[in-house]
Nucleic acid binder design. Structure first.
Lengths: 344, 344
DNA sequence: ATATTATGCGTATACGTATACCCTATGGCG
DNA sequence: CGCCATAGGGTATACGTATACGCATAATAT
């Protein structure tokens, strides 16, 4: 009770003090060239003094531009609560920074795929565009994407770029990364390389990684054995289960390429429990280079994605989309990080 | 280019179709009781059919309520880029979920403390309130908080509850947690317990943890040795440096309580390099229970904070603040997780 | 039967900004 | 010296919603 600033100043207040009309204030502050330098400077000074800020809602309502992006993150059906995609954080960091740099706000929301998110954000004028990260049910995802396209909603998504997908996609070079991993394993003399991760079209990124592995093996004259592939989603438990299934099948193998570090960490536990020595008996490579990867015993060879570049590129691409500038799909390079788990 | 929905429907469209006036539509959809059940049902049906959503900007402009919260995360001056507070993610998850449950949107922004964030979010009507996480320069932080209070801005912050702080604070029971850790170390026979982490008023939470440790030691008839305390910020490198400094000082110690897991992990590296056996020669306890804590060798005893509860509580408290309902400071319990690093 | 109150809804208007349009002084040009 | 382009800025209005009020009709009280 009794706050000294009687109320938030409006553009009318500024206009009054500057001896001009309200529209002139608006023009001056938004950089219109039809206002003289002197007038603009004066207006800016007064605005500064009064701590004036443009009312976001009024501005958005009138201009139909919110200068806000929405980031929708889709969770897996049963998320390993304690370990939600660790690598997501650095991407989030670079996305928020890039947004700030461009003068955009960022709305964030963790979603279940079955929600009506595809209606909420654009139709209610909350944001100018949407960034999509992850997905639960891939088929449902595609359906909703089609709906977005129909509605003319602007969006970009993180994922597999190789598929001729719906909408604009930014992603790592998963195939190339898989090749690097495969080549490395072949180089250290491994012949029977297992793959842990969904290799179906439910998880295009994982499939790309598998494709890359297969390509590297064939290039070395080896034929990938389908019996050495096990489905797994990105969680430690799932990796553990997949590795156990592999061990119990009695198949012989001397290397494992896991589609994510979480899977790899779970698999390492299973392998160690089975008395297999890492990396002598089984070499293992993960994917993502999460912080934990350098703490495992042995430390985990993995593939590092350019998460910072990813955030920047996603925002870049989305803004281009919004402004109807041309954009093409962009693939980010990934790099193999060699650690003890493949050091023979 | 030829989109079939001629335009986003407005409340006028609904009103026309329902044979009522626009305000009635607004009333019906917002649950005003001065509209008959029949009318309301009819309006809702039509709105549903047209995929109508309330325009967020218009609504916020008129009602002066944005139904949006802003989450400001302050980064340390030199963030260990790859490992930004890992425990932050689960909190973020619970905050977004809680917001969604209450029908609030969440704006997120990583900030440098020196920015004018304290003006931007409330004054421009972007959000109804602010959640503050972390801080860089603590003194500067306090200054800006005072400014927020002056302006009548609604906010809550995560931090040390014990200080009779500015504004409303939600935080873990750091003192209690420190006591638990100390008691545990004493229980396994340790007498010379070092503390790694800033114990100054620049980092109230760390100081609370240290106070807790001291209290537990005194309760056991031990006097904490100030020479065994080393400043450290929450990063692996800083922990490593602090531990090295401790080792090189020649002080004898048989346990380490680190103010965060990152510090602990760095310290473990330094201790191992110095040929000290963990936990036989030196037992060690961290704080946060980040995923990596269960992957170190030996696995790390640590304190788990209730991050999910934290997110819920922060949102809860802020909404209460916004609605001018009474709220008191809330302290969340923390729990010691015993692992190999203190198993003797 | 008349006065009173509640119910359900329409009328008018405000929220604060951005833009289309219009007008007035210049200055340049022939 | 008259004509037109241009700079600079004012006037009017729209963006879509939420609320203060007022006014009927119906329900209840007296």
């Amino acid at each position: 009770m009794g706050r000294q600033p009687s109320a938030k100043p409006t553009s009318f207040d500024i206009a009054y003090l500057a001896g001009v009309s309200q529209p002139t204030v608006s023009r001056a502050l938004r950089g219109s060239k039809s206002v003289s330098a002197a007038t603009r400077a004066n207006i800016q000074r007064i605005a500064q003094e009064l701590n004036y800020t443009v009312d976001k809602n009024a501005s958005s309502l009138r201009s139909q531009r919110t200068h806000t992006l929405a980031l929708l993150f889709f969770e897996d059906p049963n998320p390993d609560e304690s370990m939600i995609n660790p690598f997501f954080l650095s991407m989030l960091g670079s996305i928020t920074r890039e947004c700030a740099r461009r003068g955009y706000d960022l709305l964030i929301s963790f979603q279940q795929m079955h929600n009506d998110w595809h209606v909420t954000y654009q139709d209610s004028h909350r944001s100018d565009g949407i960034i999509l990260l992850g997905y639960g049910d891939y088929q449902l995802y595609l359906t909703k994407l089609e709906h977005l396209v129909e509605m003319g909603t602007k969006f970009v998504r993180w994922g597999s770029v190789s598929e001729d997908g719906i909408g604009l996609t930014v992603g790592s070079d998963n195939v190339g990364a898989g090749e690097q991993a495969g080549a490395h394993l072949v180089e250290i003399g491994r012949r029977r390389i297992a793959f842990l991760g969904d290799a179906s079209d439910h998880a295009p990124e994982f499939q790309d990684r598998y494709d890359g592995l297969c390509r590297a093996m064939r290039a070395a004259g080896l034929e990938p054995d389908p019996a050495l592939q096990r489905d797994a989603v990105s969680s430690e438990d799932s990796g553990y289960a997949a590795a156990r299934s592999l061990i119990e099948s009695g198949q012989s193998f001397d290397a494992v390429f896991a589609a994510s570090d979480l899977i790899a960490i779970g698999a390492m536990r299973a392998l160690a429990e089975a008395g297999l020595r890492l990396p002598q008996d089984v070499a293992i490579i993960g994917f993502d280079d999460i912080p934990a990867a350098s703490l495992t015993t042995p430390t985990l060879t993995t593939v590092m994605q350019d998460m910072k570049g990813a955030g920047t590129l996603l925002v870049d691409a989305l803004l281009a989309r919004i402004d109807d500038r041309p954009v093409e799909q962009r693939i980010l390079p990934a790099r193999l990080i060699r650690r003890q788990s493949t050091a023979v």
